[in-house]
Amino acid sequence: MQVPASFEYRRARSVDDALALLERFGEEARVIAGGHSLLPMMKLRLARPEFLVDINDLHELDYLRLEDGEVRIGALTRHRSLLESDLLGRHFPIFHDAERVIADPPVRNRGTIGGSLCQADPAEDLSAVCAAVRAVAVVLGPGGRRTVPIEDFYLGPYETAVGAGEMLVEIRVPVRPGAGSAYRKVERKSGDWAVAAAGAALSLTGGRIGWAGIGLAAVGTSLVGYRRAEQALVGREPTEQVFREAGRIAAEDCDPQTDGRGSAEYKRHLAGELTRRALLVAAERADRAPRAARSDTEEG
């Protein structure tokens, strides 16, 4: 039976209490909420935190709201809330696409967006989604609150910009008029980790692509950095040929490895094809996207 190494456990009563515990315990402390990412790694002893700070009682971090032209998502918001959110459905259907293929209902009932992003697994679905929509992470710590663009949030596999004594408290996604988004994934069985997956977002202005974002999962060590493919889209008409070319570039720039889920060549092919498909759906959705954002709130 696999069991984690010994650790101490504290249940935080507030955000300030959680930060105080993290500062007290230092670099060996980890935050835990749903636990579906951290606990399996602890059982395999790939992660060996000496202290766990449980934030499940911090209901102030469980919300979805539209504010100042951004959808703001509390770090403790559960997968199920993301899947059921009308607000995300209107502005960022890519989240619904991804949540439908993440694990199973028990995991979606407990797992959180903050835990998913902080795990920084190169095969993690919501990380690729946030890369595509250019989300911004809000990190709170002893030095105060700071915002970190998603491309700077991921420092490498299983490593983020959240430092000792800090915690991710919010994710912000800018709402762009005339935008659409989509996520496409190939998996061996329902709810499994991706063989390959692609998220895409774009906005249309005057029949041309004004902005584009792409995020890939399970095809290398990086979830971000597909700027060449994005730049190949901007200013172009949203055609099958343009999307196919962007997919080809994204496939060139990823770095998949052969493993039990498939060969590197197969995964690279999937990266290009799934990028093309996601872009096609994103463009279709952009044609019927909301043109104006209204104030809205969904509390967990």
Results as ranks from 00 to 15, higher is better:
residue 3 V to A: 14
residue 3 V to I: 15
residue 79 H to G: 01
residue 145 R to Y: 05
residue 1 M to C: 14
residue 88 L to R: 05
residue 69 G to P: 06
residue 64 L to A: 00
residue 46 L to R: 13
residue 70 E to F: 09
residue 58 L to Y: 04
residue 76 L to I: 09
residue 93 P to I: 07
residue 71 V to E: 01
residue 26 G to F: 11
residue 31 V to N: 01
residue 130 C to Q: 01
residue 118 C to E: 04
residue 121 D to H: 10
residue 48 R to S: 15
residue 130 C to R: 01
residue 25 F to Y: 15
residue 88 L to W: 04
residue 146 R to D: 10
residue 137 A to H: 03
residue 88 L to Y: 01
residue 79 H to E: 08
residue 37 S to L: 04
residue 43 K to C: 12
residue 80 R to P: 01
residue 21 L to T: 01
residue 92 F to Y: 07
residue 42 M to S: 12
residue 87 L to K: 00
residue 48 R to V: 13
residue 15 V to W: 05
residue 20 A to K: 14
residue 69 G to K: 10
residue 20 A to T: 13
residue 3 V to N: 14
residue 112 T to Q: 05
residue 139 V to A: 03
residue 141 G to A: 03
residue 5 A to I: 09
residue 86 D to M: 03
residue 143 G to H: 11
residue 19 L to M: 14
residue 23 E to S: 15
residue 69 G to N: 07
residue 8 E to Y: 11
residue 110 R to Y: 03
residue 32 I to P: 04
residue 144 G to Y: 02
residue 122 P to D: 07
residue 12 A to I: 06
residue 94 I to G: 03
residue 135 A to K: 03
residue 110 R to K: 11
residue 101 V to P: 02
residue 23 E to I: 07
residue 50 E to I: 02
residue 80 R to N: 10
residue 122 P to G: 05
residue 61 L to T: 02
residue 17 D to I: 07
residue 48 R to Q: 15
residue 55 I to L: 09
residue 116 S to V: 08
residue 46 L to D: 07
residue 27 E to Q: 13
residue 60 E to M: 09
residue 120 A to C: 12
residue 125 D to C: 08
residue 30 R to N: 10
residue 62 D to C: 11
residue 118 C to G: 02
residue 60 E to F: 08
residue 120 A to M: 08
residue 22 L to H: 08
residue 77 T to Q: 10
residue 58 L to K: 06
residue 66 L to W: 02
residue 84 E to H: 11
residue 142 P to Q: 13
residue 13 R to H: 14
residue 23 E to L: 12
residue 143 G to C: 04
residue 29 A to Q: 03
residue 82 L to S: 06
residue 43 K to Y: 11
residue 139 V to K: 04
residue 123 A to Y: 09
residue 81 S to K: 14
residue 58 L to H: 08
residue 57 D to R: 15
residue 119 Q to V: 09
residue 136 V to P: 06
residue 36 H to K: 02
residue 128 A to P: 04
residue 61 L to W: 00
residue 141 G to P: 12
residue 53 V to R: 00
residue 90 R to D: 15
residue 89 G to R: 14
residue 54 D to I: 06
residue 110 R to M: 15
residue 34 G to Y: 06
residue 144 G to A: 03
residue 12 A to W: 01
residue 92 F to S: 00
